[in-house]
Design a protein around this nucleic acid. Structure first.
Lengths: 211, 211, 211, 211
DNA sequence: CATGAATGAGGGTTCATTCAT
DNA sequence: AATGAATGAACCCTCATTCAT
């Protein structure tokens, strides 16, 4: 709000960068402050602890992500469109701030630190679950699937793609990001199985998959 | 060599239990030793460091998992059968030792500690990728999908289910485990979309995908 | 910067005192901090490790000593005067800070810790060697002596006197220190042998040393 | 006494080698045992502790050294001959077992560990002191020198030459060893000062030694 | 706001020593 | 005599956090 830099934001961005580079545990408070170009004592003016910094990063990002997903849910669009848009938003977040995603993927999601946040993470799963459930109710998605489990699968698929980008190699360009969103939507909605192939070996008779 | 317990194994099992309960970082070496009922110094007879214990847990388990997945690949069965079996093995591992899975999921998979092991983790992805690729070559899987990305989706889906069990709630019984394996296979192979519904968003006759 | 004590210096002096009393190895970091009246963590603000404290003690002292010896060399005084002055400076250092000498003698000089410092110690030997060499060139010192070896003898003689003071008994007063400096100069320059006695038994005929 | 190797001696020799290589403190009991090719527990059959091994090395060597020096003293030879012989014995010991000398020089002489042995080390100084004193009584050595101090100088000179060999470079051959013994004898008995040069700064007719 | 000196709980690791076999 | 698994005291160091300035 002042003409000068906002030190709080400065520290938060520095933390994202440092945590992304070295991991939360290996990052010292001094590293973050140094990256921000301030004395490390200042961090304690804005945050109660090192962990609170991580929590703040998580919560701010997660809130935005949740809002976006809720917005998608609110459109009432067909279920598969909703899935597609969620994938586009989640995977598209990479472009906005890869370091941030790195931190979220590596440190937050299943960290013992922030297992209080399960509630907030749970809201994301809840939303995905509702999307699936409504899809089933509307006859778009198959009714035999367990919605919670499907939500996990959706979430896991997207997270792992991001993880692949984090760990193995980042996407070359925006096109690859878009392609990934399209691919994951296809797999999750339509399956790996080719159109002409039998769609479910377990079913006794399914003659008319592609007639 | 003795009729008594193998202290090395004892320590490893104790570490799995303790790491699962408190997390690797919060677990002290003394906790592990106490759980094993030995002096903590003994841990350093069998392992070079606390971290080496975690690495050993990872490597031993991962080797077994890889072997199983390689075995499935070697059968030359239809691609979707292979996917189903992989899901059964991976998710079935929960029953064998939930604590072990807990540790693997939470500490190892994307921990900065063990990112040297990427090679070994990469072998798993390679195998999944090959399964997809062969499925495409055989006309079973759709050729438009990027195999590496599909491998990530497969892996992420399974991992997230295990994570859900770790974080949210464990499966009630063996049946739920089996059901999960079946569900994930269905989703990944056949998609979320119901049989009667339009299978691909790319098709012309889908007017209502408004933004 | 403050009117108060310099904690770094405080720690260094405390370390000298403690190392002198208990020896480096037997001294715990906490002992040094306690002697300095500060928390032991503070030691790691100013020094990287316990060993670095010892190194700092060594280097600071050694630098001062070297400077003094270089100053003596620079005077261009007759060689034996230079030797006398060096002895006076080296042995006189006892009076300034016996504990410091104790530490240097016992811990540093030939400690495996600080054998990287050989370079700096070597400079002292080099200086002594040059003094001998110039003495020979000026016809003051006998040309048959190996200068490096003579430097070792000079150094060893002085060091052992200090060691005697450290181990057996300290000098009673300043006079004893001055007497020691005079004695060592006499021995090294003029020899143990009395004026009337034959100066070198090895020489075939040297009847007239003092006729 | 048995046809087999004497394990005690084996351990002692191994300790000398290991201590020489890594220093006493950095050498682990296991290193010594490994060098000896036995289990480390065996060390405790022959010695009460790691320190006792060092003490034993010291004592055995020192006893031999003392005996040799006492033998020289007992000959009643002229003082400077005794000094020459002592130098020859002490410096000659290098050839017999450089590692042993290394250990004695670095670990024992002024180690806090073995300061109980001052008594035995003191005997060596006592002997040197007696040699000087008798030389003075016989009119061979100048009476103005403090005998104890002269003993320290003698000892220090020899020790430092050995140290130079340990730290800087070992003697190239036996001849260099012999030459060193001759040099040190010359310096200590006859002084650095050349025959024609003024021998004593204390003499009245030396006006120009301004401070 | 801002600094960084000061604190000290906490934990991993070493390694001499013991002792059952 | 010989082994090496087992023990645990000892200690260095890290680093989040506090607080006087």
């Amino acid at each position: 709000m002042n003409g000068q830099v906002n030190k709080r934001r400065l520290l938060l961005d520095a933390a994202i960068k440092v945590f992304a580079r070295k991991g939360y545990h290996a990052s010292r408070v001094g590293d973050v402050a140094q990256e921000a170009g301030v004395a490390y004592g200042l961090l304690y003016h804005y945050f109660g602890s090192k962990e609170e910094v991580l929590e703040t990063i998580f919560r701010e990002t997660w809130a935005a992500m949740l809002e976006a997903v809720h917005g998608i849910e609110a459109t009432g669009a067909p279920a598969r469109d909703q899935v597609r848009k969620v994938a586009a938003v989640v995977l598209g977040s990479w472009k906005l701030n890869p370091d941030l995603i790195r931190v979220l993927i590596r440190e937050v999601t299943r960290s013992p630190h922030i297992q209080q946040e399960i509630e907030e993470i749970g809201q994301a799963f809840d939303t995905l679950e509702r999307i699936v459930r409504r899809g089933q109710a509307a006859g778009e998605f198959r009714p035999t699937l367990e919605p919670r489990l499907a939500a996990w699968v959706l979430y896991g698929a997207m997270e792992e793609i991001l993880t692949g980008w984090v760990i193995e190699r980042p996407p070359a360009d925006d096109e690859e990001v878009a392609l990934a969103a399209q691919n994951v939507t296809e797999i999750l909605c339509d399956g790996l199985v080719a159109d002409g192939a039998p769609r479910d070996a377990g079913r006794p008779a399914e003659p008319s998959v592609a007639d």
